[in-house]
Design a protein around this nucleic acid. Sequence first.
DNA 1: GCCAACGTTGGC
DNA 2: GCCAACGTTGGC
Length: 150
Amino acid sequence: MQYWLMKSEPDEFSFADLERKGREPWTGVRNYQARNFMRAAKVDDIVLFYHSNCDEPGIAGLAKVSKLAFPDPTQFDPKSDYFDSKAKQSEPRWFCIEVKFYKKFKSHIDLENLKSNRELKSMLIMRPGNRLSVTPVTAAEFKVIQKLGS
DNA sequence: GCCAACGTTGGC
DNA sequence: GCCAACGTTGGC
């Protein structure tokens, strides 16, 4: 059982969108390290849903991995923003997982709150300039965050 | 909209 | 395989 933090711009796809839809394929990740993390994710792993590049950056709630990594279909779609001309059906470059809505926090945990917590200093998300859209979270960090959200 | 951080590209 | 140039991310 692993914990992951996944970023999304709420203008594109928000936690509320996930709640409404129930589940969503996490397509469009075009970074090798993030891709590798997704390939390591297992069904029922917990996902912290992070809102980035918005008025209130922070963790909006929890999701769960509902499907193991599979080839991201958007890489083969010339009409998609995420089209990759170098990807082949026989040799996909990019993968995605499916996530499903799990739980809302009582309160949105804003970035300021995360930053002020000493126990969360180690989180990758706290590193300045960190751009990874999928990062692992430790059980200890998760515990602290869960407390902040309840 | 600014800008620091950092991943990727491509010429050599 | 180095590294400068370039593009993107994301908080502010």
